[in-house]
Each structure stands twice: as structure tokens, then as C-alpha cells.
Simulated scan of single mutants.
Amino acid sequence: MKYIAIAAAALLLAQAPAGATTVRVHYAASGKDGIQVRADKGAAGWSQGVPATRDPGPLNVWTFTWPDALGDIQMKPTLGADKVSIGGVYKLPAGSTLDIYPFFGPPFGKVTIVKDVASPQLNNKRALRIYLPPSYGENAAKRYPVLYMHDGQNLFDAKTASFGVEWGIDETINRLVATGVMDEVIVVGIDNTPERIAEYTPCCDPKYGGGKLNAYDAFIVETVKPYVDRTYRTLPGKDTTAIMGSSLGGIASVLIAQRHPDIFSKAGGVSSSFWWNNGTLPAKVPDRVPVKFYLDAGTRDDGLDDTTKMRDAMLAKGWRDGDDLLFYKAEGGRHNEASWAARVDKPLTWFFPWGSARQ
């Protein structure tokens, strides 16, 4: 029996492709349609695909391999012969194995509202506005990075936005995913409350007070994130979790990420209110933590000088320009949703470039 087992193992090794570059396509395609592969090298071409092999078992995984000698591969799967996956091409370094989770339907995500989410930390309630990406209902095998954002009322719907202008986060992400420059993500918009100023700020500005940021921070980390991770198909690790906001929400995002580098790896401060409390935030930047920060400001009454001071203070603490600190000066940009909508593609594509998420 021992020799039979050894012989069987040797046979399997002999049949396995030596030095294979492999894609594993996770998708519940029917046997009739199946998954095909188009690529820039090998038997598969860009104009006509080659069938992938469905792995045995219940997981709906389709496999295709190329010899290592062909070098790096660029490819896209198709559903059947003609329906090409939405988004960008997938890049496989020679010798690698890449798991991908494509979709083939319309590139439109969906926003749902979760009402009356209680905050024991702040003793109040608010809604969460959850953007689920285009493939969420189509490919049940896929999990997603998550972006947490403040001022949820202003993100997706002009009817609920404070000044009748929305960020258009859903439309922007739909477009960036469809054109293959951004990965799909879940966005959690956290509504503000009448206590917005206090909740988004540390203590204490001489004019506006503030000081409930610690409790709001705890609400996100202890209540909102655990709820989202157990309710939706998220990638819950720090490398796939980001936080972003504007104005006071910008400083809230920066401070929360600085405090929790074990939870957030990316933070965006859009038109952040770094003037808060006579500019103490740029003056007291903590030591560098392993978080990527995006900072920006417009050139028209948008706190550009204070944001520049924050950028310079972070560089002095060890952040690296263009590596883990991206600063953008928005020419003509103002302190409003229209300006933020016009440039939100910059942090989105920097945080979540196409092909960056792994599961």
C-alpha cells in the first residue's frame, strides 16, 4: 500500500504543469456557458478565448495555466465565448497563481440605508448608507475592501445633502470600476447628527468647543465596523480598510487613523479643517504610523495654507511624499461638495487601484 501511494503521488507530480502561471476564476458559471480566458500570450488571444477547466467540487472555480517561459501574462475572463468581464485586465507575474472574482453584469452599485443604528458611546442613533459594489449580488464568492466615510447624507443623494449637492460617490466608483482603474469597494456612509461639530473634533476650539471625537472614534471602531463585517462580505483586515471625510470630517479621519493603524491602512482628509483650535493639529503631529494619508485643499478659501502646514509636518515626521503621503492642490477648488466630487477620484484610485485587493 505504501508503494502504491508513493507511485500515485509521483504520477500526480508528473502530470502537474512545471513552472505554470495560473489563474483561478471564481464564478458560478453554468456548465453550458462556462468560463473562457482571453490573454496577450499563449493559446488564448484577445479576440478569441480558450475554455478554462472547472475544478471538481462545489466552489465554482475555473483554472487556466500558461508555461512560465511565456513571461508575465495579461488576461481577462469571459462568460461563455463572448461576454467579457467588466473592469480592467488582470496581470499575472510569471510563475504566479492569481485568484480573481469577476463580474459580467451592469457596472452599477446599489445604496441601501440602515436606519437607527444606536451608538452606546454617544447615546444617540443615526443611519448608515451602504454602497454595495456592482458585483455584490452577482458573484457571491467575492469579498470587498471597505471605505468608511462621514457626513453620509451628502455622499449619494442630492435630496439629503446639506446644500443640495452630493459627492456622487456611487457614480464615481461605478465609472472607475467600469474603466478598470479602481477595485470594487463597499462604502459605509455614516450620517452626521446635530452634534456634528463636537463628534468630529478633539477638545477644544476657543470658538466652537468640540471634544467628542474619542466617543465617535469608539462608535466607528467598536460598533459600526463590527456590524459591517458581520453583515456584509468584507475584507476586514487593516490593509483593506480605509476612512475618509471632508472639512471637520477630514480631521476626524486623520486623527482616527493615526490612533488605529492596526485597523485602518488608508485615510483621506479632503479640505480638512486643520485650523481647528488655533492650528494645534499640524503643530502636534504624532510619530509616523504605517498608514497612507491623502490630503488636499482647494486654492479658493479652502484652508490651503493650513493643509500645507500639515503636509510639511507629516513629512518632517517621516512620511514619504507620493509613497505614504499624497498631497493635492486643487486649482480653483472651494470648500463644498461640488469641488470634492470633482476630485474624489484621486484618493479612491490611490487607495484602491485595480487589482490591488486580494482575498
Results as ranks from 00 to 15, higher is better:
F156E: 01
S135M: 01
L281H: 04
G332W: 10
G332R: 14
P134R: 07
I220K: 00
L315V: 02
P107W: 08
L70R: 04
W46D: 04
A94S: 13
D302C: 08
R230C: 04
K115H: 15
A14N: 04
F108W: 02
C204V: 13
G105K: 04
A52G: 01
I73K: 07
K115P: 13
L59W: 12
G249P: 05
G237C: 03
P51D: 05
G49V: 14
G249I: 10
R54V: 06
G209A: 01
I243P: 03
G152K: 05
G42C: 14
L11V: 06
D68L: 15
R24S: 07
T53I: 14
D302W: 05
D229A: 12
T201A: 00
Q359H: 15
V270W: 01
D301K: 06
A81K: 04
T299M: 03
G34V: 12
M182V: 10
A43H: 01
K32Y: 12
I4L: 15
V291C: 06
R233K: 14
D323N: 11
Q121A: 08
D183C: 10
V177D: 00
N154Q: 13
H260T: 10
Y294S: 00
A9T: 09
I130A: 07
H150R: 02
S273T: 10
T53W: 11
V254H: 02
N174W: 00
R175C: 04
K329I: 14
K76H: 05
E138N: 06
K284Y: 02
R343Q: 09
F351A: 02
T299V: 03
K32H: 12
L122G: 00
P261Q: 15
F108T: 09
I243K: 01
E195G: 14
T160H: 11
K284L: 00
T240F: 07
G180P: 05
A9R: 10
G71H: 07
G164D: 14
G105V: 01
A257W: 00
L326D: 12
G318N: 09
V25K: 06
P77E: 09
R54F: 05
V84E: 03
L13Y: 11
C204F: 10
S246R: 12
D205A: 01
P347F: 13
W66K: 13
A218C: 03
I4C: 07
L59I: 05
A198G: 05
S356I: 12
A257T: 03
L255Q: 13
L255T: 14
Q74G: 09
W62M: 14
N336D: 15
N336I: 12
V285K: 02
W275P: 03
E222I: 07
A43W: 01
H150I: 04
D262A: 11
P353R: 07
T65W: 15
K329A: 06
V114S: 02
V111P: 08
V89L: 11
D33A: 13
T241E: 09
N124P: 01
S265I: 02
A10G: 07
K125V: 12
A242D: 11
M182A: 14
A9L: 12
K83G: 00
G168K: 00
L147S: 04
A118R: 15
Y144Q: 09
I35Y: 02
A283Q: 06
V84L: 03
L281M: 09
P206R: 08
T234L: 04
D99Y: 08
L295N: 02
G303E: 07
T97N: 14
V89I: 13
R196F: 06
V291G: 08
A39S: 13
R311E: 08
Y208P: 09
L132W: 08
I243R: 03
I86A: 00
